[in-house]
Nucleic acid binder design. Sequence first.
DNA 1: ATCGTTGAATGCAACGTTGCAATACCCTTT
DNA 2: AAAGGGTATTGCAACGTTGCATTCAACGAT
Lengths: 334, 334
Amino acid sequence: MSSRLKDVAARAGVSVRTVSNVVSGSASVAAETRQRVQEAIEELGYQPNLAARSLRAGRTGIIGLAIPELHSPYFGELAGLLVDEAQRRSWTVIIDQTRGDAEAERRLLTQSGGRVVDGLIISPWALDPAELAATAPAVPLVLLGERSPQEAADRVAVDNVAAADEATSHLIGLGRRRIAAIGLQPHLHNGTARLRTEGYRRALDRAGLPHPTAAQRPVAALHRADGARAMAELIDGPVAPDAVFAFSDELALGALHVAHERGLRVPEDLAIVGFDDIEDGRYSHPPLTTIAPDKQQIAERSLQCLADRIYSPGNDVPPQELFVPHRLVKRGTA
Amino acid sequence: MSSRLKDVAARAGVSVRTVSNVVSGSASVAAETRQRVQEAIEELGYQPNLAARSLRAGRTGIIGLAIPELHSPYFGELAGLLVDEAQRRSWTVIIDQTRGDAEAERRLLTQSGGRVVDGLIISPWALDPAELAATAPAVPLVLLGERSPQEAADRVAVDNVAAADEATSHLIGLGRRRIAAIGLQPHLHNGTARLRTEGYRRALDRAGLPHPTAAQRPVAALHRADGARAMAELIDGPVAPDAVFAFSDELALGALHVAHERGLRVPEDLAIVGFDDIEDGRYSHPPLTTIAPDKQQIAERSLQCLADRIYSPGNDVPPQELFVPHRLVKRGTA
DNA sequence: ATCGTTGAATGCAACGTTGCAATACCCTTT
DNA sequence: AAAGGGTATTGCAACGTTGCATTCAACGAT
């Protein structure tokens, strides 16, 4: 079925080494010999055995991407960009789904069960930052969006505090005074929600506006259903808000859905700002105003970080923190 | 840095082979020896080298999933289920994005550039069915949703003709008479759109209703934007429809968006049925009526097909066609 | 006491590839 | 004619693992 260098060599009447030279293009081979070998390769349909190549090279050419949920639009879009970018560097991407499971994240970091990847891009969700910092990763690592007490690895993220501040300030600028937040995750160690909460409060403090606990709704996950539930709680609560900053577009879309159900006009009665700029948000009714992180740059810079560490393993550059730009995209909801 | 069987063996004072026996658990090892080896493994943080293992075994434990677009909600959700299911079989999944590129699909089928995966699940989009049937795949193959003249590989799909018929019949049952279709893809070789068109026409024929060409809108891709464009064309066309069957939920959501923009009431003025049952559809306004394929079963049965062929390579069972169930989910748009 | 049987541990070889070093050859220069 | 330099090709070894066959010891049965 599958042929090896040896078979090609026999057919072309040259040594195994020469065929290897032709395939890799590293050493010089006479034009005529190369031609003959190429023909033999074609005829036999030779494909290099990557296992053998990896064994020799100590590298697999595969990098891992670990995200909480594949079906989340934000991570779906980001994964698409990362795969494209990896292809350009002739890397293959393995995508892992952690589902917010600490054990799954731990397993990936230590690569227990076998090291398949040359590097790992992970969006930690459940893992305690302290543990994250303490765990010696088995491979070069890029963290997406997390912030640990002392950075354990390269990190690529938007400036969540500034972005949340900007979103909230936009609502304040529209004259809103009862601005709620949806998306706190006190039960998780993930730092993103905490940072966005910080930015939200900072903007309100600066404007001299209150941020009562009842207006800051925690969620179990970042799905539409969670946003819908939180919005219903807000409407039924002591002080119905005139604006909501949702920590993800999915939450925002869930909230928008409930607002419609309850007969609220958006944005007149209720303004909404989301976060992520997922494609769905452009087609909601009305289209969603949101914070748009530069996903393309997240993809590019994450891979650049990995490449730097994979190709110069000895070089112990300290972990760096990269911020990618974001911008407020004004559409219909605020 | 990373230790090998040899290192563990030296530390535990046994042979390399014995350590291998402990790790694989295949041969019998004395309890005391096993204990000692386990300790050495712990102390050294030994991880098996998968490249070496694959080289020996001739299998990588990795399967490929090739889909047109990762960020599409339908494929995102499906991919999530497939990864879960693969994990249960202790397989790793590599996800490839073909972006509707025939060359990319060809490359995956032949695994040119190196065989990484033990099997491939592919949703062919651009590749000519004839070519698909003619190409000898380099690895066991499962086709998602495609239909080629003579099946070249196992296929897992919903019965698209029946499902489209059902969707259209539902609209007819609601008393609609000018039923448009959005999502034809005459430029692509992908059979899915063709099958859904067939079901759509069949239902209309049975009811004695017309299906003028102008009411059957082709699209470049299955995105919301394409659905929006097609909907605008329909409204501005000679006969504005009172119902639309969109070949994907994304198209339907784009259409819904435009309907709102143009002041049409949904479902009163315009009924809409989508296809895929993506999560967004549950949170649109109003929520989307759609055909829901059983994605869980698609995932399970695809992997079962692969497993059968990977673990009994000689066994030349002819390609089989598996249909998974679907159902019409009535929500707010029709 | 001897034999066969079982359980435990081992050595050798091979999977397919590439780095290294060596060789063989031809052509140019002195 | 001999030395030197370059190009083309090759053999050997090693990457880390596991299948196979073998060895060794211990034990129960004859």
